[in-house]
């Protein structure tokens, strides 16, 4: 009896082996590329010295973290970071699904390929260039909006780069403009993976197009949405630096609505160039993201264990 159990156990262990082997190259890569450099977390607690190196430098406790909180902007930049990310998650997901559904409805027509390629193009531009485009539209003297559109409507020109009220909308639009095509691809792929016979059956039962979308496509997309959202939550304390720095042209008047944790760190460390402090900022952003994602994952696990991340 005992023997049988051990044999069985052995077998089971052996059973995992082939799968582990398949995963092994990827695991090794992640260990090398991601986990070993995580040792750099030391830097966040060290007063870095070039002579002494990472491990030899003096410990300085949490000194490197202080600069993140000792500012009147601490609350403002945290709020901005979170709110923008939430807006990106919600609006981005909704619109990306919409585009994906539309594309899939059109099937394999030639124009679909063109649509998809065209929507992807903005993603290939760097933020610096996008900054130029936005400037081309919003510039006070020669900008497209002031010079052409507002003139045509006989409205007074607006000084966009000091008009705080408009920027939340501008930033969200620019983000969507750049990323929509990219995000919709994920959903297009998911929809492509749905078994076609389900739709056929529904059509035979007389379900309308809208009904099919709402009762088949959207529910089938739920796992993807959950996973993507969970992943975004993990990075909720990070922000796309280029979007918040290059696009508003670093305009001081807009800091109230454009300052995020990343831009604060960049502006603060531009001169100091301090290895320890930038490492500290990274640790802070990750720890918060980590805690939030654990919470979110727990909630998902409770209601929908299948789709939890881990």
């Amino acid at each position: 009896m005992e023997k049988a159990v051990t044999i069985k156990r052995k077998q089971r262990k052996f059973k995992e082996l082939p799968l582990l082997l398949i995963a092994l190259p990827g695991i090794l890569y992640l260990i090398i590329n991601n986990y070993i450099p995580m040792l750099g977390i030391f830097l966040a607690f060290k007063d870095y010295s070039f002579i002494k190196g990472i491990f030899g430098s003096d410990w300085c406790g949490f000194d490197n973290f202080k600069f993140l909180f000792k500012t009147g902007d601490a609350w403002k930049m945290t709020r901005n970071t979170i709110l923008y990310n939430l807006a990106f998650i919600v609006i981005g997901t909704v619109l990306a699904i919409l585009v994906a559904v539309l594309i899939c409805e059109l099937g394999k027509r030639m124009r679909v390929k063109i649509f998809q390629a065209a929507l992807l193009l903005p993603n290939m531009l760097s933020w610096v260039v996008i900054g130029y485009i936005v400037y081309a539209f919003l510039n006070a003297d020669t900008g497209f909006i002031n010079n052409t559109i507002l003139k045509f409507l006989k409205l007074d020109p607006i000084s966009w780069y000091s008009f705080t009220g408009a920027w939340p909308a501008i930033l969200v639009s620019v983000f969507l403009w750049k990323n929509l095509g990219y995000q919709s691809i994920i959903f297009t792929a998911s929809i492509a993976g749905i078994d076609k016979s389900i739709y056929e059956a529904a059509a035979i039962d007389g379900a309308s197009k809208m009904k099919q979308i709402f009762y088949i496509t959207l529910p089938m997309l739920k796992p993807t949405v959950i996973i993507l959202t969970l992943m975004s939550i993990g990075r909720i304390f990070y922000s796309d630096f280029g979007l918040f720095y290059q696009v508003p042209q670093n305009s001081g008047a807009l800091y109230g609505v454009t300052q995020t944790i990343d831009t604060y760190v960049y502006r603060g460390l531009m001169e100091l160039n301090d290895v320890g402090m930038s490492a500290a900022a990274g640790v802070y952003q990750s720890v918060i993201g980590f805690v939030l994602v654990l919470l979110a994952n727990k909630i998902v696990r409770k209601y929908d264990a299948e789709n939890a991340l881990f």
Binding site: F67, K70, T71, Y255, Y264, R267, E271, L272, D274, M277
Partner: peptide
């Protein structure tokens, strides 16, 4: 350093 980062931000604003 802490003060410098905060002050630099205010100045660039």
């Amino acid at each position: 350093k802490t003060q410098y980062t905060a002050v630099s931000n205010v100045i660039s604003q």
